[in-house]
Design a binder for these strands. Sequence first.
DNA 1: TTGATATATTCCAATATACGAATATAAGGG
DNA 2: CCCTTATATTCGTATATTGGAATATATCAA
Lengths: 111, 111
Amino acid sequence: MADEQKMDREGLERVARVFQAFSDATRLAILQELKSGPCGVGTLVERVGGSQGNISKQLQVLAETGFIRREKKGNQVFYSIDDPRVFEMCNVVCSKLKSEAQEKAGFVFEI
Amino acid sequence: MADEQKMDREGLERVARVFQAFSDATRLAILQELKSGPCGVGTLVERVGGSQGNISKQLQVLAETGFIRREKKGNQVFYSIDDPRVFEMCNVVCSKLKSEAQEKAGFVFEI
DNA sequence: TTGATATATTCCAATATACGAATATAAGGG
DNA sequence: CCCTTATATTCGTATATTGGAATATATCAA
C-alpha cells in the first residue's frame, strides 16, 4: 500500500486486479515455468496442461499485470518475466504457508 | 514460489488462495485501515463502509491467510496485522502500478 | 433473566471466473 | 495463392464470488 495516505477505491481496485491475476493455480503454474526463462505458448501448453486457448487467455491476464512480458518473434509469441519481484511476492506467501504447515505439525519449540 | 523444485497443483492452489484473499478492493481497504493498528469490526464497518455482515465475512477471508490476526476481547473482536510482509507485497504491486502510470504519462527519458 | 450491543452466519441474487470446444487471425514456406 | 503452424478470440456452461438483508450467536450490564 502507498506509504502514507490512503488509496481511494479506484486505486485499491487496481491493486486488487493484480493480486487477482496471481490468484489462480494455472497462472501460477505458468509463472513457475517462466521462472526458468522465456517460453513460447505452445511449450507452456505442453508443460502446464490444459487447452491452448486457455493458456493463451491466462497469459494475457498475466501480461496485463506488467510483471510478465509478451514478445512476438515471427510466427510465435514468447512470454517472460519482466519484473522478478513477482517471485518475491510468491516467496512471502510460500514461506507463510510453510511456517503454518510446521505449526500444524507441531514443529514449534516454545517455552 | 519455492526455491528450486516445482510446486504441485495442490501447493499452487494454496498459494493462489492467499493471493485471492488480497484480490478484492474491500479487503484491501480493510488492510489499509489495519495498517494504523488493531481495529474492531464495528470501527472497520464505519471506516470501510458496507454492511456489517460483509465486513465480518471479508475479515474471515483475511484471517485465513495467516497474515491477519483475530483476537476476541470481551464483547468485541479485534483484528490486526500479524505479518507485515503483507504490505511488502502490496508495495511491490503499488510501485509497479506507479511506474506504469508514469510511463503512460510519458515520464520516461530514454534515448 | 432480560435487554442491549457486537459479531458471525445464512440465504439469495447479481456478477465474475475458469475452461474446453470451436473458430478466427497471423505468419511463414512452398 | 494455398497450406501449415502458432496464437488469439468467441461462445457456452459450470462454478465461484460479492454483497445486502435477515437471522443467529455471544457477551455484558442491570
